[in-house]
Design a protein around this nucleic acid. Sequence first.
DNA 1: CTGAAAGCGCTTACAG
DNA 2: CTGAAAGCGCTTACAG
Lengths: 359, 359
Amino acid sequence: MAKAPASPLAARAKLADVAHLAKVSLATASRALNQPAMVRPEIRERVLVAVQMLGYTPDRMAKALSSGRSHTVGAVVPTLGNAIFADGVEALQERLGERGYTLLLAHSQYRPDREFLQVKAMIEHGVDGLVLVGDTFAAETMPLIRSRNVAAVTTYVCTSRNNLPAIGIDNRQAAYEATRHVLSLGHHEFAVIANTSLPNDRSQARMEGMLQAIAEEGIRLTSSRIVEAAQPTITSGREAFDRLRKAHPSVTAYLCTTDAMAVGVVTQALRAGLRVPRDISVIGFDDVEIAAEIDPPLTTVRVPTVEIGTLAADHLIGLIEGIAPPLTTRLDASLVIRGSTAAAPSLRAPKALGRAARR
Amino acid sequence: MAKAPASPLAARAKLADVAHLAKVSLATASRALNQPAMVRPEIRERVLVAVQMLGYTPDRMAKALSSGRSHTVGAVVPTLGNAIFADGVEALQERLGERGYTLLLAHSQYRPDREFLQVKAMIEHGVDGLVLVGDTFAAETMPLIRSRNVAAVTTYVCTSRNNLPAIGIDNRQAAYEATRHVLSLGHHEFAVIANTSLPNDRSQARMEGMLQAIAEEGIRLTSSRIVEAAQPTITSGREAFDRLRKAHPSVTAYLCTTDAMAVGVVTQALRAGLRVPRDISVIGFDDVEIAAEIDPPLTTVRVPTVEIGTLAADHLIGLIEGIAPPLTTRLDASLVIRGSTAAAPSLRAPKALGRAARR
DNA sequence: CTGAAAGCGCTTACAG
DNA sequence: CTGAAAGCGCTTACAG
């Protein structure tokens, strides 16, 4: 009945154990690990060996408490259900991980008050920095971030009134250009579907770009031709299409602020017996994977989600570590022309009017 | 030039400040907040008022260090690009938030070695618990979790050899039943597309269920009728279809272990001039949003992602707080029959064989 | 280059 | 029910 060597799953080694085994002080052990240049090579080596032997792994909570840095970053996105955010978050986490940071994630469901709560919880959890989306927040959000002095960047937009470094695209301009494309095909009966009934400055900007392009051609959209939805889902697109089709059967061009809604429009239109793009043209925005796969494939605007996520990580870490990133990082959002847009039906009809062809 | 009241953004209040203002000891202030029953009501009230006045908010890192609980949970999923994980993570975070926990998120890209690294990083960050996916891990993963004694559950499967509480579906059984449905339609020329070339026990189980159902009808699939893909993407499905179609033009039933791949098969088949489901039937698995929207809509198996995420949160918190959850939580995975499956062409052809109709 | 000591902001036995 | 004190596992001026 020999007494067992009593290694009850070897209670996790701490730095003091390492120091003891390496016969150095706690301070030296700490330095050997974190500021190796400050320690004589042979001593450093001894510490490293001890770390190996004990399987030592630092306690980040303790480290965080004493150093004031948690090496943790929080992101709050509207939803993971939208592929542009799912992909962006993935890229963000990827780069954060490479640079030694861990990601805390939350979603706001497009609700500013929820976003505020999430931000608050993350700050309490001691994040070194925050990645936000857009530039419209609850009234208390920015004051909280400022007063707590936590680093923050925002994404999917390229400028910020709040003075946050922004990494994204010019939503308004990109939507404007996409709409110019549709105009060039001779359309003059428009409808717009935008997920702006919950605060969403990206979709708001997209819608404005669309309306501006249309207005420049002398066309004004009555409000009944604009449907605002809460969620950017296929179902939202479907329902919006049904309402618009009933009220304005003459519409030939449906402009949507997200692909999911555009997919809803296309599929619902097909079910209603319309031909796309023969009878109606549809554009989306985002270029999610499915956009290229439905029939007809969607004309849309590509959002560079991976670049946004990756640069957000880099810029935020820069900010945390004292290197000021640019306040504006404007990424390209290219128009992707596919099969859901074509010349307006009137152009092919016997009595095509000159108006439709004027550009 | 009066001296400014010098409130340089009011350095964040700490508990000691609260205690001082409320004229109680640090210990009492702490108790008033965390174990209110232990403190006389009037004193508790004084503390609460002080908290209000100072806008005190606890430092979770310090709290974590001294209490040994971080109120933080880590999840590592294969990818957010697959909607079933995006939705599951969203539900997980939702419930975790409601119960006072914050989510640390990472993705492994279906690579066990990356999963191990992520788990390790999270443990160092002091998570109280871990949410994993599936039941196949790198060799070091479970030993690490065990030795660090951190709570863990696994998801998307309903049992675990590793003795982790599992919350999910019976992938094999569900795929078996879906395949029975296809068999009942008279098909006997099959092909299987599975994302199993990277370790994936969910898809592996699904494939096995498919093969078993087929085998029970006396049909054996040669290996050239099984295509293994790495990623469960539309593109994977497309490419697999092209290979299978070329090698086995007689195949009438394509069984896919995920919807995204099934969407790839359907769209590619249509482009190749086949009619779905007239010429071929296709089934997917997951029931992601797009499955119901493509034309024809996909016959698939519904995975209850929200329930999985929510229950994973509940069971993990239970484990953390000392309430043992069930080791097996088997959720329903119902077959959703839509338009991508129909009677085998041979049944409609002039010289239909008795064989095809035998069940 | 190295060590002794204070401190990060909390929690929690231990006494009273 | 309340308080004084030790302790969680690190980092980092401060001396030497």
